[in-house]
Write a protein that binds this DNA or RNA. Structure first.
Lengths: 158, 158
DNA sequence: GGTCAGAAGGTCAAAAAAGGTCAATAAATG
DNA sequence: CATTTATTGACCTTTTTTGACCTTCTGACC
């Protein structure tokens, strides 16, 4: 069962999809009412699923007549985009974050579906769960996981 | 009499069989309740019977709305070649050996030139030269090196 | 023009809702 | 009886949900 946050995310994405303009404007309280949740839940969704890294810009206005404006950012030039991601990368990246970035690369058309699968396989915790610092051992694990991902049928069609 | 782990395994396999989609999503606690066992028993079953090597991919999410997702990986039969390489892989692989294998994959037409570049970048000693065992740090280095390789001119033409 | 009430939205941390790990038994197997 | 395989439970981490409290606008009323 998807969480409320997931449903709100889906709803907003659909709205954005439909909107010919590239952005939507909504009211936080109305949305919270619609999904029967506290208003701050909306902020949670925006902060976790509509970030710049994920290709969205969120603007808002407080006070009477306030609103939330969510814009799907237009595709940037490939190199600029990669450079941007690269710069914003931390010294440490969780699996979730890594997956998010790879997904974005795919959605922006920078990598193919196959490449996404390959990259995902490498970033998976099973692959990177090493006890040694020996790079030959790490290389072996990574290569194995890449080969396994090559064997997947799914892989062939992408 | 089959162990409880066996029964859980069988149950999950049946679900997977029936599911037209190739994967199932379940909740760990529900499943544990159904089989009257502790939740960690489920992890035991997943870790021993639904591994990558056995052709399954297990993904999961913690927190509210959390779940377990088990995917049966369809294996391509004519890729005996990859299976062969995979079997012959050591626990430890030098950069040279790794490069050789990747090159061979390319020559066999199993991977594209871009994929080769990507794989090479990852296996490179600079990428894997880590001092920590922290997988988030290793993941960060790998992702960075992949991004850099995506930016290379050479990459565009392959 | 200043001010103040009400109408938005924002922040943050605590609580809740999952799933994960690990090591100590217990049971089965050879 | 020694080793492997299962079972269990205590404790941990991640993600979501909730609520109390804060800030920023707008408009009506002096």
């Amino acid at each position: 069962m998807p969480s409320i946050a997931d449903k709100i995310q889906q709803y907003l994405e659909e709205l954005l999809e439909k909107s010919r303009a590239g952005y939507i404007e909504i009211q936080r309280n109305r949305l919270a009412e619609k999904f029967v949740c506290v208003p701050s839940q909306i902020n949670y969704v925006l902060n976790t699923r509509f970030t710049i890294m994920q290709g969205y810009l969120v603007e808002s206005r407080q006070g009477g007549g306030g609103y939330l404006k969510i814009t799907k950012l237009p595709v940037v030039k490939e190199k600029d985009f990669i450079r941007f991601i690269n710069q914003s990368l931390n010294e440490v990246i969780s699996e979730m974050t890594g997956e998010g970035i790879v997904k974005r690369l795919y959605e922006e058309g920078i990598i193919t579906g196959r490449e996404m699968l390959l990259m995902r396989a490498i970033m998976h915790k099973e692959t990177l769960n090493v006890e040694t610092v020996d790079m030959d051992a790490i290389r072996a694990k990574i290569l194995k996981s890449m080969l396994l991902s090559l064997m997947r049928e799914e892989f062939q069609n992408k």
